[in-house]
């Protein structure tokens, strides 16, 4: 039934010939005129498809069959008060509901936290306090998106994780979508910081992306939350602690280490693509 409105666009319709006026008039007056049943079927099949003939039938009914018009009016008046009580579907969707296609609907606090941390780092850099010659943006760049990726896959933060994992869209598609959403928030914030503190974009972008893809690659094996925790530990041991101890930028964050970061990024991306099915089972949400 729902198809008829869409298809009835006037024109000849698939059956070619339109119904003749006397035939329509007889149909409008009812079966007393002795229409053959197969003719009635053919006419009704045609009427479902053909808007022009429906309009003509309606004109015939108004002109030649006042009792039918009266009956339809009675039915409408009976229906109208009940229709008025039916809730109308809202046309406007809330923006938060639309955003849920990119992040889990419970990510908002995490996103606010990211923006806050980045702003704080920027403030500390501008005030000149903190870790000597290493800007905070360099230090934080690898670890911020990892936390975001973990938040979008964690059991604790996503109450509907089991439903999500069972859906057809789970797997690589949702992984990429949610990771893109995380990066869409983190990267602009870091970009502003990098620009203000004068760090080359590659210098923080490559570690940032390499850590993110490693979190996902490792997450396919041991669960994304566990992977994120272990990567944050790696970050603390390899980047944060040496920087704090030496008071200067560690070797892994200098320009010379960039090819290594690129290699890590490429390898991890390869692993994610090869093990795409791993994100569609409950294991990825550990």
């Amino acid at each position: 039934m729902s198809g008829t409105g869409r298809r009835g666009r006037g024109g000849g319709g698939p059956h070619g010939a339109h119904a003749s006026s006397p035939f329509l008039a007889a149909y409008a007056r009812g079966a007393a005129d002795g229409l053959a049943e197969d003719e009635v079927w053919a006419l009704e099949a045609h009427l479902e498809e053909c808007r022009d003939c429906r309009d003509r039938l309606s004109a015939e009914v108004t002109a030649g069959a006042p009792d039918v018009t009266a009956l339809v009016a009675t039915v409408w008046s009976g229906l109208e008060e009940r229709l008025a009580g039916t809730p109308v579907m809202p046309h406007r969707r809330r923006p938060s509901a639309r955003l849920s296609r990119w992040t889990t609907p419970v990510m908002a606090p995490w996103l606010a936290m990211t923006a806050g941390v980045t702003l704080l780092a920027l403030l500390l850099d501008l005030l000149g306090t903190g870790t000597g010659e290493t800007p905070f943006v360099l230090l934080l760049a690898p670890v911020l998106p990892v936390l975001g990726v973990a938040a979008s896959w964690s059991r604790g933060l996503d109450p509907a994780y089991e439903l999500t994992a069972s859906a057809p869209r789970a797997g690589l598609y949702l992984v990429l979508r949610r990771t893109t959403a995380v990066l869409a928030v983190v990267l602009p914030a870091l970009l502003v910081c990098g620009w203000v503190t004068g760090v080359t974009a590659w210098q923080w972008l490559l570690p940032c992306l390499a850590f993110t893809s490693s979190a996902l690659a490792l997450g396919g094996v041991v669960g994304v939350t566990r992977a994120a925790v272990s990567l944050v530990a790696v970050w603390a041991a390899v980047i944060a602690a040496p920087t704090a101890a030496a008071g200067r930028t560690t070797a892994v964050l200098r320009e010379g280490a960039l090819p290594v970061w690129a290699l890590v990024l490429a390898l991890a991306t390869g692993v994610v693509l090869a093990r795409r099915g791993a994100y569609a089972v409950l294991g990825a949400h550990r």
Binding site: R94, A97, R101, V106, P159, A160, L163, A167
Partner: peptide, 17 residues
């Protein structure tokens, strides 16, 4: 998701499916 309406939640699931 507590903040979703019934319709939004079922729509979201339909999209996931």
């Amino acid at each position: 998701y507590k903040r979703f309406t019934v319709r939004e939640f079922v729509e979201y699931m339909a999209w996931l499916k």
